[in-house]
Amino acid sequence: MLDIRNLHVAVDGKEILRGLTLRIEAGQVHAIMGPNGSGKSTLSYILAGRAGYEITEGSITYDGEDLAALAPEARAAKGVFLAMQYPVEIPGVTTMTFLKTALNSQRRQRGEPDLDAVGVLKLVRAKAKMLNVTEEMLKRALNVGFSGGEKKRLEILQMALFEPRLAILDETDSGLDIDALRLVAEGVNTLRGPSRAMLVITHYQRLLDYIVPDRIHVLARGRIVAEGGKELALELEARGYDHLVKDVA
């Protein structure tokens, strides 16, 4: 589903990703682990299409299509979803309004009819319960005054709502206590399925206790430096990243 080859990405002329190659099939969950500054967030932004991130070499193919050629909103409509590390606040726009606008924007780009307010509400309610997203949260302005856990739960709610084909979770565990982490992980796990691929980006092994990946890639200095099964996470937990990073220096 996602095929990244020899990807080089620069930000402000500085090269952050330096020849990253990665392949994920539908139905799989892959984890990207790595120390701070290794390029994890850059990878998530380049996949979502954030302005200011420039591909200088290599390619990203998503479902047989050149992902870089698509506008960010078109990527979303085609099933790319990024759960952000720092969900932004939009004052004055209720969460419900935002969800409805986003959902219908995606639908419209796919040539599907808009859902009316009742239709959206039903859909949201059905998904919100599992993630303990309350009606009261849906009425508040998007992410304004939300706790860290609430913000992350709302990200996963959006993932459940949009039903993406490729979900990227950028440091979804950051800022969560253990209960919140468990709730978010459960949400993610219920969304695992044969037609969906997930890329879980994390600094710590902790999240992978709950979301068990099919494969782990270690990112250091803009490149994949090690790969393995889920047991690799435990090894990293024990030995740290240093020995891997040294090898690529």
């Binding site: 979502a48 960010p72 909103e73 979303a76 986003a102």
Partner: peptide
Amino acid sequence: QLFYCLARGIP
């Protein structure tokens, strides 16, 4: 803010 909207499919 803009990027967040775009990434969720809002032009």
